[in-house]
C-alpha cells in the first residue's frame, strides 16, 4: 500500500508533480509525463493562436480527465495579472486547484511575496484551492498558511537553475511547523535532489526543467519517479542516528 499525497482533500498516487513546459514538442512532453508517473501537471494560460488553427492543443495530448491540470500563473509579476489568469483558468473548465506564482524579478525569478500573500487571500475567498510558490522563509510560509493556502511550495533554488536544495535547514523548519502539504517547487537539477527533498519530509516535488532539458528526458522522467519514491520510503523508514565513530556491521564475537 502506497501512501498518497493529499492536497485540498484530493488524493494522488504520485508525489511527483511535473511541468509541461520547455519540451521539444507535445508528443515528447506527453511521453515524459507518462514515464514520470505524475498525476498532476502544471499548465500555463496563454492566448489561443488565432491565425494558426492547426496548432496542436495540449488537451489533445494530455487528457485532463486522466491527469489533473494545475493551472499556474507563470509569467505574472502582479497580483492583478495572477488573479486575471487564474479566474480565466477556472472558466476554461472549472479548475479550482491552482498554483499561484507571482514573480518579483525577471533575472532571478524569485517570488514577490507581498503580492503573493495578498493574492492568496483573495483567491481563497473566491473558493480557489491555492498551492503557493514561495521563497524558503518559514515566517512567510506561516503567513501563507494563515491566509488559507492549500499547499506551501518553497523553491529549492531559482526556477530552472538546477542548483538543488540550497537551504535544507529552512525546509526542515517549514516542515516542522506546518501540516499543510509541503512541496518543493523549482530549482532541482537531478533525481537525487528530489530524494533529498523527500527525505527532509516534504510531501512532494515539482519538476520541469530538470526533466524537459535533460539530454534524455524520458530516462530522467523515470529517474525522478524512482527518486521520489525512494526518498519517501527512506523518510518513512526512520533513518539511523549519525555518529562520528564506526560501528561494525558483522558480529565481533566468534572471530577466528
Amino acid at each position: 500500500m502506497r501512501d498518497k499525497l493529499i492536497v485540498a482533500g484530493k488524493k494522488f498516487n504520485s508525489r511527483l508533480i511535473v511541468g509541461t513546459g520547455k519540451y521539444k514538442n507535445m508528443a515528447e512532453c506527453a511521453k515524459a509525463i507518462e514515464l514520470s508517473g505524475a498525476d498532476i501537471v502544471t499548465v500555463a494560460v496563454r492566448r489561443v493562436n488565432i491565425s494558426n488553427k492547426n496548432q496542436p492543443l495540449l488537451m489533445d495530448y494530455i487528457d485532463p480527465k486522466k491527469i489533473t491540470y494545475l493551472p499556474n500563473t507563470a509569467g505574472c509579476f502582479t497580483s492583478r495579472d495572477a488573479l486575471r489568469t487564474l479566474r480565466l483558468a477556472r472558466e476554461i473548465g472549472g479548475w479550482k486547484l491552482v498554483k499561484l506564482e507571482v514573480l518579483g524579478d525577471k533575472k532571478n525569478l524569485f517570488p514577490e511575496m507581498i503580492e503573493t500573500l495578498k493574492t492568496t487571500e483573495v483567491l481563497t475567498r473566491e473558493g480557489f484551492k491555492v498551492m503557493v510558490y514561495c521563497n524558503d522563509d518559514p515566517l512567510m510560509a506561516k503567513r501563507l498558511e494563515s491566509a488559507g493556502a492549500s499547499a506551501i511550495m518553497p523553491l529549492a533554488a531559482p526556477i530552472g537553475s538546477g542548483l538543488g536544495i540550497l537551504n535544507q535547514v529552512n525546509i526542515k523548519i517549514i516542515r516542522k511547523q506546518t501540516k499543510l502539504p509541503l512541496i518543493i517547487d523549482a530549482g532541482l537539477g537531478q533525481a537525487s535532489d528530489a530524494t533529498i527533498a523527500m527525505e527532509l519530509g516534504c510531501d512532494g516535488v515539482l519538476v520541469n526543467t530538470a526533466i524537459a532539458k535533460a539530454k534524455k528526458p524520458f530516462v530522467m522522467a523515470e529517474a525522478f519517479k524512482n527518486a521520489v519514491i525512494a526518498g519517501r520510503q527512506s523518510f518513512l523508514s526512520g533513518r539511523i542516528i549519525k555518529t562520528i565513530m564506526g560501528s561494525p556491521s558483522s558480529p565481533t564475537k566468534g572471530i577466528i
Binding site: G19, T20, G21, K22, Y23, M26, C29, T42, V43, A44, V45, R46, R47, V48, I50, L57, L58, M59, Y69, P71, N72, A74, R87, L88, A89, E91, I92, I159, G160, A186, N208, T209
Partner: peptide, 28 residues
C-alpha cells in the same frame, strides 16, 4: 470581463470591443 460561456449566444459585438481568448499550454 470574463464571459460565462453559456451566455455568448446573446452577446452582440460592438465597435472597439476587446476580446481575449485563452487556453492551456505547456508550462512549469
Amino acid at each position: 470581463e470574463i464571459i460565462d460561456k453559456k451566455r455568448i449566444r446573446n452577446m452582440k459585438l460592438k465597435n472597439n470591443d476587446v476580446i481575449e481568448i485563452v487556453h492551456f499550454i505547456g508550462g512549469g
